[in-house]
Amino acid sequence: MEYFLQQLINGLTLGAIYGLVALGYTMVYGVLGMINFAHGTIYMVGAFISLITFLVATTVLGTSVPLALVLTLFAAMGLTALWGWTAERVAYRPLRSAPRLAPLISAIGVSIMLQNFVAQAQGARAKPLPPVIKGGVTLMDSGDFVVSLSWMQIIIMAMTLALMAVFTWVITRTALGRAQRACEQDMKMASLLGIDVDRVISTTFVIGAGLAGVAGMMVTLYYGVIDFYIGFLAGIKAFTAAVLGGIGSLPGAMLGGLLIGLIEAFWSAYFSIEYKDVATFSILVAVLVFRPTGLLGQPDVEKI
């Protein structure tokens, strides 16, 4: 029971991170109908930006840890968003009217390029960061097993909730959100009605990358080790989360993220840690085969 509870907490934390990355996939797919293959790599870039900013703030600038964390948050969000914006501007926008495969190949190219750029610029070795936020609360103590909820886990979940709230507000209540939903429905019509489609798409990438940046920061602080390759697997898992929740659906992405996190945690705990990735991929395949619209997605009736 204690063990189960602990895995539940771990899974939810992991799931929150996946969910944030999944939002980026689902938004871009919603608007452009394209899988932004480089999104996982952008998340990895976000993790590196966070690590570097945090280290610069604490060692070079000598700020206190809380201030350094706030700085890191802003840097991770803003600069990662800039990377995402640039990727869209350079590699995807010129291909908007190109054959379907062209932007996908271009995105794979961006992903390979960014990975190797980071490997070259920062070295291919894994980068450790000693735990920054230590401690937590003990929820249960049965003598031989202690269930604890670390401060870091609380921060991750609280931050994810806050971001989700802001985000939902943006999509449902603001002009930007309306424009975005309009583009999702019919891009040509939206542009005829005076919506600057290019700007909406850019904003979508910026928001997606910003969220991925935050996820990158949290994963850096949570696990305390990153390398240039973390984007690939995390990217596939987040995409799986987006598909599981129903691609195009924002609450779906979050729900999918949480489920994937839970599945991974429980699978590793009770079955085998080696095959945890197989579990994720199998779920992806199973969902797409048996329920291609995902849990919360809209059914897509084929017009003949």
Binding site: L95, A98, A102, I105, G109, S111, I112, M113, Q115, N116
Partner: peptide, 21 residues
Amino acid sequence: QQFRMLAFGGAMVLIMLWKPS
């Protein structure tokens, strides 16, 4: 060697931009 994959990714993007089909 070390810049090989970097150039490879870049080439993928550039060729797509130049000749999308």
